[in-house]
Design a protein around this nucleic acid. Structure first.
Lengths: 136, 136
DNA sequence: GTTGTTGTATTAATTCAATAATACAAGGTG
DNA sequence: CACCTTGTATTATTGAATTAATACAACAAC
């Protein structure tokens, strides 16, 4: 399991783990049914307390990314069953409201926001598939 | 100055003040040139330490929302001079990238995001002009 | 100059999230 | 059963962010 922790960048360790595993799943490097490393194993590998990993796994479980089987380990879920669509829409709506509040505050018009959104989408999509295109 | 503080909702007091003043400015209830209440006055009104209000005002100043005149008080800026467009675009780009990452993670397509964005924009715009529609 | 108002600076107390130490519970396998 | 591996629960420690106590500095009005 390729996970890198940076202890001094302000982002809590458990969050770094959550984010990186989310990314691995999103990228298809971890597929439904795959087993995650046991809590203790990953904790040891990262030189971190098992509770910290347990917390990360718990968050991933709540988010519907993984499921735990009591004494048998932690597995990537079948996806599609992560959260009901209604729930996901609710979360997305919150994020969008926040974005709108800030962009309005900064004096952007709606169509400017949408234009930038589309632009970033293509930029990001390209850098995901292609390889290292530049960012910025 | 109509500001309401909720001491028990997890959001730091200074941030609540910042957000509410930002909102007052955005809504036009506070106009360029208007004077904010003196730090001590607002602190007393909210039963809070003056430093807490000072911090809020400082953040508003950094954000370009207000300016301080040494011993004469704190005033809403002329706006238009808040942050250079390039700087604002940079910030907005960060927010948008974050939104895209999350929405992709949750399985939304770009046009779903845009559709919801447009929808929320009209909903919010309506509730702003109308008056107090429900918040929550 | 004195006084009263404005914002500022320094330091201390407090609170809370993150992490760790440690012990517990459940289930599979010989 | 005995044992090993899995995740869980409880409690303590730590460190950063928030808030407060208190004293300072600048300027305007008298």
């Amino acid at each position: 399991m390729q996970i890198r922790i940076n202890a001094h960048d302000g982002v809590p360790i458990y969050l770094q783990v959550v984010q990186q595993i989310r990314y691995l799943v999103a990228a298809g490097r971890l597929e439904p049914g795959d087993e995650l490393p046991p809590i203790r194993g990953l904790a040891e590998q990262l030189t971190v307390n098992p509770n910290t990993i347990a917390r990360a796994y718990r968050e991933l479980e709540v988010a519907g990314i993984v499921e735990k089987r009591r004494t048998a380990g932690t597995y990537v879920t079948d996806q599609g069953s992560p959260l009901a669509r209604r729930e996901r829409t609710k979360i997305l709506t919150e994020r969008i409201d926040q974005l709108l509040a800030e962009s309005t505050q900064m004096g952007f018009e709606l169509d400017e926001v949408i234009r930038l959104l589309q632009q970033r989408h293509t930029v990001i999509a390209r850098s995901q598939s292609g390889e290292n295109t530049h960012e910025q």
